[in-house]
Design a protein around this nucleic acid. Structure first.
Length: 227
DNA sequence: GCCCAGGTGGGTA
DNA sequence: TACCCACATGGG
């Protein structure tokens, strides 16, 4: 007969950077490949990366739909459209004045850098290309890394709110680290591989949406066995 | 009605 | 450097 002794208190284990590949494997096994980014073309991915700043993806989809219906989802159209009209079309994504300005700045950058020819941009190397993107007004580190991985095919790990929330909660970092420090933790622990960077971030968003919106979470979470 | 969502830039101490 | 705040819509 089993003893009815109370279960002893277990100190929460800290996740180590060296476990990150196993964390990824567990997520991948649970959810399958995520096939990111949700976008038809590289250009659409880049527009989406700017529109999704601090915004639910469902609202971004509405804005992108508006752009597509108005035939403004191209480099040339983005160069020609007025800020006012652009803001009207992307209104559902929120911060529409700010984002209209950011999209125009980005279009200016593409014109300067490659005349809108993304294949030219894709030939540029890292980390110089990342530095150039960070120099564009309205493109911070997360947006730059999203563009690099999902639109330009460059291995640059993306850190977002889900990554910080999930991994600081489980002790990989304190949570107060800046973006570059977070990125360094993942980059050092993982092999430099575009496919891995692409899908790992997508998996983090997936598990974050399904299990980590509320704190405490983890009931049924595929990551719970690591902690 | 309130909170949050795949951030960023500018101002201030 | 480290905080604080504005920017805004739409869903739960």
């Amino acid at each position: 007969m089993k003893s009815s002794r109370p279960i002893p208190f277990q100190k929460k284990r800290k996740l180590r950077a060296s476990q990150l590949e196993r964390v990824y494997a567990a997520l991948r096994k649970t959810f399958g490949p995520q096939n990111w980014w949700p976008g038809k073309t590289s250009f659409e991915v880049m527009v989406g990366a700017i529109l999704t700043q601090n915004t639910a993806w469902i609202n971004v989809e509405k804005a992108i739909r508006n752009l597509r219906q108005a035939r403004k989802l191209s480099f040339r159209a983005l160069r020609r459209i007025s800020r006012k009209e652009l803001a009207r079309l992307i209104r559902p994504a929120g911060y529409f004045n700010v984002k209209a300005d950011r999209l125009k700045c980005f279009a200016d950058f593409l014109a300067r850098e490659c005349r809108g020819d993304l294949s030219t941009l894709k030939r540029q190397g890292m980390p110089k290309l990342r530095q150039k993107l960070l120099g564009v007004k309205g493109i911070g580190p997360e947006t730059a890394d999203s563009i690099l991985v999902y639109a330009l095919g460059k291995p640059s790990f993306v850190i977002d709110a889900y990554t910080r929330r999930i991994f600081s909660k489980h002790g990989l970092a304190r949570g107060s680290e800046n973006y570059e420090r977070w990125r360094e933790i993942f980059t050092r622990a993982l092999p430099r591989n575009l496919g891995l960077y692409n899908d790992f971030h997508a998996q983090i968003v997936r598990v974050g949406k399904e299990y980590c919106r509320k704190i405490p979470c983890c009931a049924g979470c595929p990551l719970s066995r690591f902690f």
